[in-house]
Design a protein around this nucleic acid. Structure first.
Lengths: 185, 185
DNA sequence: AAGTTAATGTAGCGAGTGCTACATGGCTTG
DNA sequence: CAAGCCATGTAGCACTCGCTACATTAACTT
């Protein structure tokens, strides 16, 4: 089996079981190979993880591209609500869990982590810009503002402070009515 | 050596070397004991990590308490800038790296992680509320809003998107002038 | 003084780690 | 058909992992 055919299977395993405890033999088993062959194809584990992160960043981007709606939202609130719904979909839960591992790896300077995280955020930002209201006075700045708020919201949500984020958004005027129940609990 | 005397030494090691790869023997060496004794005192590794996270959440809170300034800021911008400076201090860098590991652990449901993260965020929020401008029209909501923005800013910063956050904050009106160079690069 | 208990050292077990040496089948190329 | 290379299986090495069995010392209690 080729390297290219291995990557999606490895990615699936990592999405399910996390990145931290991933070791060669379980990875190989999930991909239907042996640890021997993983080293053969990737050289060593560090390169494997690095390539895998790059691949995952790629499929994340592709997923965002596929999720671009045809109708633009009319307000920033609507835009914010839409992207939050997108990200909080059950299929994205594994991605979110993996995401924090990537951020943690980036903070510790592990090889490939920062690059993957950077790529994913860059793509997320580009996607958000396409989703901004057509009549927004400052789409570039607004997208960056929404991205910052959204990431903060997601983080607070994963540590059990979704309520804090929701009340903060309400105070900011961003989550009035429409989005208030989309922030999660 | 007692359990209570062990915890600060263990915490120091974890802050320096991370939580993910922490194993008993290096931990014991850093604390001047043996793996044998760590198990003796804590029962098993999971409990040790759990207790350690609780302890770390405690010293984090104590650190925040000690950092409460005597003079209240006059604007939300100033408040935001002040807390960002506080958190970006060199002494806090290890904490930040550890923080993302804790968030990742919480997302994966590991024992003790969510509790520790929750405690730290709760304390951070309380601290932020005391730092809000005295004449703020909505200190509770404002603190939650600032916290959400701040956590988003920190995350973007650790993955190399500090510029994105800075521009987003500028667009929001929060980082005009005063705070613009405090967001980092 | 005798007995009990807490604290610690030494040694090791079974499992898992990344990775390698060696052999072997199959496929292409001369 | 021979030669060589790509892909793979088998076995194992040196190491670390969390954890335990056993023995010993030190201190406190009666």
């Amino acid at each position: 089996m080729s390297r290219a055919a291995l990557l999606p299977l490895l990615a699936a395993h990592v999405l399910d079981h996390g990145l931290g405890g991933a070791s060669l033999r379980p990875l190989a088993k999930a991909a239907g190979t042996s640890d021997r062959m993983l080293i053969y194809h990737f050289g060593n584990k560090e390169t494997l993880i690095s390539d895998l992160l790059e691949y995952i960043a790629g499929i994340y981007s592709a997923g965002l591209d596929a999720a671009i709606g045809q109708s633009r939202p009319h307000t920033r609130q609507e835009c914010f609500a839409r992207i939050l719904t997108e990200i909080r979909a059950p299929a994205m839960q594994n991605f979110m869990a993996l995401w924090w591992e990537i951020v943690a790896g980036a903070a510790r300077g592990q090889a490939g982590y920062k690059e993957a995280a950077d790529a994913m955020m860059t793509r997320q930002l580009a996607w958000l810009e396409t989703q901004m209201p057509a009549d927004d006075p400052d789409p570039a700045g607004g997208a960056r503002y929404l991205l910052t708020l959204m990431e903060g919201t997601l983080m607070l949500g994963t540590v059990g402070h979704a309520r804090t984020a929701r009340e903060g958004l309400r105070a900011s005027g961003l989550a009035g009515g429409l989005a208030s129940d989309l922030v999660g609990d």
